[in-house]
């Protein structure tokens, strides 16, 4: 019986990442002081959520065989639109909706160009990454952007602190569950997987590939902007540099989790583990007192090793 549980676990594409997660968890648990405290676990989750919310969209998109390198910029855009509208005295809820809408619109543009002109999404969204970032540089570097002194229940609910967790942890987990159900248990999920697996074949069987793809780009853009709004609610200031590099971290978390870089298979549970793994590494290194300039190098080395192991494990199945 125990054997069969292990076999079952091993048959899951998330297994490799889950195993690395456990090993590293145990390693830090033993060697990093205060790693196993509630505060530390809380801060691990808190560090993970914004990236995590972005990753939910990116997982669906990559399952459908596309990339979105603009999510970091869209994240910043969501922050900016939200703070700009609040400072213009817009009703905060309306500002929130419009901020998300800005991400959705970017998603539609990404999806439309990708499908209409058959430009690879890697290229389209790379251009979009620069375009949005440049736009923010132009607009947002002439003043300080802060919500200092503004009281808002809406912002508190969106991402205030409850106990030791920011509320976005809750939104993130809810989104993971919804994303998982969508991918595993709906027509949309089945057809997204088919598009990612073989889009010509999917089209030949009657799937409206372009419509589905544009929709997943919209979803990805909307979620990236939503993550921007939760980020603003937490930190209450905006800087044009927010979210730089986030797109690659998102891809890293997604593929660490077992989603195929080439599309056709995706797993939200895996992505959840992938996101937590990255933030646990950071948190553990902080607690171990490793100098900050080493983080990237260590995470980079870990990423390569973990992926090599993952791919090896999968080939064995």
């Amino acid at each position: 019986m125990r054997m069969s549980v292990l076999t079952w676990l091993k048959s899951k594409p998330e297994f490799g990442t889950f195993a690395s997660f456990l090993c590293i968890f145990i390693f830090f648990g033993v060697f990093a002081p205060r790693f196993l405290t509630i505060e530390s676990i809380g801060s691990m989750l808190n560090m993970a959520v914004e990236l995590g919310i972005v990753v939910v969209g990116v997982t669906l998109l990559m399952t459908g065989g596309e990339f979105d390198l603009s999510v970091g910029s869209v994240f910043a855009l969501g922050n900016f639109v939200f703070i700009y509208l609040i400072l213009q005295n817009f009703p905060i809820f309306l500002g929130f909706i419009l901020a998300i809408a800005s991400g959705v619109i970017i998603g539609i543009i990404n999806g439309w160009i990708t499908t209409r002109f058959a430009v690879p999404s890697f290229i389209v969204t790379l251009g979009m990454l620069w375009a949005i970032r440049g736009f923010l540089l132009f607009l947002a570097t002439k003043q300080w952007w802060t919500l200092y002194g503004i009281q808002s229940t809406f912002l508190d609910v969106l991402n205030g602190k409850t106990f030791i967790f920011y509320n976005a942890v809750f939104w993130f987990l809810v989104l993971v569950v919804i994303g998982h159900i969508v991918l595993e248990n709906t027509r949309f999920g089945n057809q997204i997987r088919a598009c990612g697996g073989d889009k010509l074949n999917a089209r030949f069987m009657g799937i409206n590939v372009n419509k589905l793809k544009i929709f997943t780009f919209m979803l990805t853009g909307g979620l990236a902007a939503f993550a921007g709004t939760t980020n603003l609610s937490r930190f209450r200031y905006f800087h044009w540099y927010l979210g730089v590099g986030m797109e690659l971290e998102a891809v890293a978390a997604v593929v660490l989790g077992g989603t195929l870089l080439t599309g056709g298979y995706g797993t939200l549970i895996g992505s959840l583990i992938g996101v937590l793994l990255l933030s646990m590494l950071r948190n553990g290194m902080i607690l171990l007192g490793i100098p900050g300039y080493w983080y990237q190098a260590i995470i980079g080395a870990f990423f390569i090793i973990a992926m090599a192991l993952n791919i090896k494990l999968r080939a064995k199945r």
Partner: peptide, 10 residues
Amino acid sequence: YQETDLISQL
């Protein structure tokens, strides 16, 4: 169809 087949990821 002749040239396409089932989708191997599903």
